[in-house]
């Protein structure tokens, strides 16, 4: 009896082990699981330390009043969020960020697309112009901001020389509350449209020539080829470009700090510069965290809407 029972026990253990081994072999086809076990932990760890924990911390600190020193004890409930909702400068920061997104999508991308369609063909002229348009993107953002500060200078800048040539006194665009944000938008488009143009050119080069030729043989005009063949095939690239443009707009910071620092009198703040100036610089870390949380939810809402609306089939 005893030995018999022992035998079945041995058997069942043996069976379980064998089943597990079989599952492993099946699941680990081409070393998939081994790869996962080896490669996932470092990435997961980094992601947790630098993304998940900070987000959680910001969410936590958003309910406190804390100046960055010592213990976090002063719980204030939703006060930080209430202050935020009533803050004039934060509202203008939201509007400005919306403006950057709008201009990126409605001005920058069409411009980039137009340039890409003109410059996608081979030839020295196309190469030269591509390089010229791409150059601003290579510049560091702080350097770009400093350069444009000089360009916009009403006394010595390029803008003032142009105005002077026309016989008028140049405005100090960065010192005018009504103009500074638009001046920044010009720089944003100037700096980033070349990047999107390159994306589009890469996308265009992936479109099979045969399709275009077939359309041409069928008698389609150049416009029709562009609208009915090229653009639909370019859709994935356009989607990608939109994604970069919106996320980049939400994060706009480095360019603004040297250009205006959010001024004059806080008229050109974006969400991120607002977070820096009103949260970090003023040692209101709790308040700044609340701004961060708002920004996080805006980004999250965008990411979800983007997946649902633009990739209805890939969200499996």
């Amino acid at each position: 009896m005893k030995t018999g029972l022992g035998l079945t026990e041995d058997l069942s253990v043996d069976l379980a082990a064998r089943r597990w081994r079989a599952w492993w072999r099946r699941a680990n086809r081409h070393g998939r699981l081994t790869t996962m076990v080896l490669f996932l932990p470092p990435a997961l760890l980094l992601f947790t330390i630098f993304v998940v924990i900070p987000i959680g911390e910001a969410g936590f600190l958003g309910f406190f009043k804390w100046n960055g020193y010592g213990e976090v004890t002063n719980f204030v409930g939703t006060q930080n969020y209430e202050r935020l909702a009533g803050n004039r400068v934060f509202k203008s920061a939201l509007v400005n960020t919306g403006l950057v997104i709008a201009v990126s999508l409605l001005v920058q991308l069409p411009l980039a697309l137009g340039m890409a369609l003109l410059l996608a063909n081979k030839g020295p002229a196309a190469y030269i112009f591509r390089t010229i348009f791409f150059l601003p993107f290579i510049l560091a953002e702080v350097a770009t901001g400093l350069i444009w500060r000089f360009v916009y200078d009403g006394e010595f800048g390029l803008v003032s020389s142009i105005w002077g040539a026309l016989g008028a006194e140049a405005p100090f665009v960065l010192a005018e509350r009504g103009l500074a944000m638009y001046a920044i938008l010009v720089v944003v488009v100037w700096k980033f449209f070349g990047f999107h143009m390159m994306l589009f050119i890469a996308g265009l080069q992936n479109i099979p020539r045969e399709l275009i030729e077939a359309a041409q043989i069928d008698g389609a005009s150049r416009w029709k080829v562009t609208f009915y063949v090229v653009l639909p095939l370019l859709k994935p690239t356009i989607m990608l470009s939109m994604f970069f443009a919106v996320l980049g707009s939400l994060q706009l910071f480095d360019l603004i700090m040297p250009l205006t620092g959010g001024g004059p009198s806080n008229s050109s703040q974006t969400i991120v510069t607002y977070l820096y100036q009103f949260g970090i610089v003023r040692l209101r870390i709790g308040f700044g965290s609340a701004v961060g949380v708002v920004l996080f939810f805006i980004s999250l809402a965008f990411a979800l809407a983007y997946r649902r609306n633009l990739f209805p089939h890939s969200a499996r």
Binding site: L174, A180, P264
Partner: peptide, 8 residues
Amino acid sequence: FQRGYLAN
């Protein structure tokens, strides 16, 4: 102030 002082 000088013109453009808010940007200086």
